[in-house]
Design a protein around this nucleic acid. Structure first.
Lengths: 175, 175
DNA sequence: TATTAGAAAGTAAGTACTCACACAAGTAAT
DNA sequence: ATTACTTGTGTGAGTACTTACTTTCTAATA
């Protein structure tokens, strides 16, 4: 990938995250990236192609993020790392912007990437099973739903302090 | 409010919920409502005004929805009704569309109406206190966050069965 | 008669996207 | 070494069309 190609992606990421996909014009992306507008279409074919490139990047990042959790053998660690994941993301500026965009895209395109979550869901189910929970599969679903709720707050509720809730959760699950 | 005014609002609600605010043009709203485009600007001043009218409607609906819960004296009922609230919404087509739009707007405008949730949060805190929970305020926050997560799934994950999770929750809270 | 609801036809600015062209850098043949 | 040809990166001006919003007009009603 060339230097300007990366600049376009970075500019699109920033503007899409701030203003939304359909509120961001290709001319704005080009101006913000410091390139000509035509270059966007040369490299990404359409505006949609630009979005897809960003989504793909998100899928890769998600996989590497989950890998560390899924490979964990200690069930308590699986749960703890899942809870901490959202905390880690929220504490890093660049990561926060990136994942906020991924959620924004979900709401704008109305496609929920449930398949992306499946390995994590399986790992959590097995963890809750090992710990003797009565409904491990539902417990896993619930924890992921809590993470979705937390993500919503982190992204939209300015000044939301995530840490108090994550440590409360870790206490609850005794991890 | 005149007949055509209501038609405009209804059309805007449907299109904003389906395609998003900025992807929906005033001309499309007018066509869908069967009125001239200019009429939108006569009655709502601008596109933003149309959105505000819908948001205001949402605030009214939210208040009446919470009223029943807040006035409840039995702490277990407060918790049960809070959990069932999201289930009730998801089972009604028109309501679902309406609340989906409210969430969509939140993500598009990045304004989280936390003040709207405050009475419910207080009612839940008092309920958890009465039931002797160790951290009633955090428990209240957690339940509302779970509701946010559930709303995300209901709106975005097609085929999501909400009922299994809500009954699981009611079991967990013993309500 | 004055005010309002409504339609129809505008407007200027913006939209996604295309096109012709320039400038390299590599490759191969002379 | 020079020439010719391809290939990929990049630009800037243009395309047809859509956008939010205005203006001008009419018909009804209080």
């Amino acid at each position: 990938m060339t230097e300007k190609q990366e600049k376009i992606l970075q500019a699109a990421l920033e503007l899409f995250a701030r203003d939304g996909f359909s509120s961001t014009s290709t001319s704005k992306v080009a101006a913000h990236a410091g390139v000509s507008e035509g270059l966007i279409f040369r490299h990404f074919k359409n505006k949609e192609g630009l979005l897809e490139a960003i989504i793909k990047e998100g899928e890769v990042k998600a996989r590497t993020l989950f890998a560390d959790i899924v490979l964990e053998s200690d069930p308590k660690e699986v749960i703890r790392k899942t809870i901490d994941m959202v905390l880690n993301i929220s504490s890093n500026r660049a990561d926060l912007e990136f994942w906020k965009l991924q959620y924004k895209i979900k709401w704008e395109t109305e496609k929920y990437g449930e398949h992306k979550m499946e390995p994590l869901h399986l790992a959590l189910t097995s963890a809750f099973t090992k710990l003797g929970y009565v409904s491990p599969e539902l417990e896993a679903s619930l924890l992921l739903i809590i993470n979705d709720g937390l993500a919503t707050r982190i992204a939209l509720q300015k000044g939301f302090k995530c840490e108090t809730l994550t440590s409360f959760l870790k206490e609850k699950y005794q991890v």
